[in-house]
Amino acid sequence: MTGVERIADAFANTGKQAALMPYLMGGYPTLAASIGIGQACVTAGADIIELGMPYSDPLADGPVIHAAGTEALAAGANVAGVLEVARTLAQSVPVVLMCYANMVLAPGAEAFVERLAKTGASGLIVPDLPLGEAPEVLAACTAHGLALVPLVAPTTTPERLAAIGKSAKGFVYTVSVVGTTGERNALGEHFAQVVARAKASTELPVALGFGISTPEHARQAAQAGADGVIVGTRLVRAAGESEDPAGAVGAVVGELATGLAIAR
């Protein structure tokens, strides 16, 4: 199975109202601990794992994920180490790497994507690579069967949305709010509209992320038609606050999975 096929398969077989997609920061608090956190996510019901590559200048991230990335780097995380995390987790679930553009382009898009594909990962999200800058990375991902997953924001114009929906692979990642990653008390004002617009633009599954932190949010997203929910900051915070990061993250993911259970 290619990465693209593996992602499609995961969305088709969640057994839940929507696919549960935990985000974890590679190498946070340490490389070994982040493998444990990822495995706890899988046990607790994760369908797809989004794995963050720590970066010096993460422009799309709020303070919690920014600080986790900084700590991971200080603890020695590097590309090889984070790709090892991907390799381990990809044995259980599809892994999508979230990595900023400069790190993808530093060795060359083709070289980076080839290395990523060899770990068994299924896809790539580059939060600062809008459609117009994407052709080189898209070509490399397509050549290796990986999904280059695009982001769609509440501010994305209809023309852009149509073009993004058409070239997307794997799924479309809709951003629920105008803003950076971070927990919020409620989902963004227009999240249902963002999901509906994205669904109208593509045949692919549509996942909602940024700001989802409770089982209630996850359920609301699924009810609005999201095929997947991405939970990031809430889990990174749980990892940072506990002596037992894997246990703490696993518990939160378990609650989210229960929230997304199909009523019988």
Binding site: P130, G132, V152, T155, T156, V178
Partner: peptide, 14 residues
């Protein structure tokens, strides 16, 4: 050059 920014900013840049 180019525009390597989050999608959220693309409309504002245009």
């Amino acid at each position: 050059g180019g525009q390597f920014v989050p999608e959220t900013l693309m409309r504002a840049l245009a």
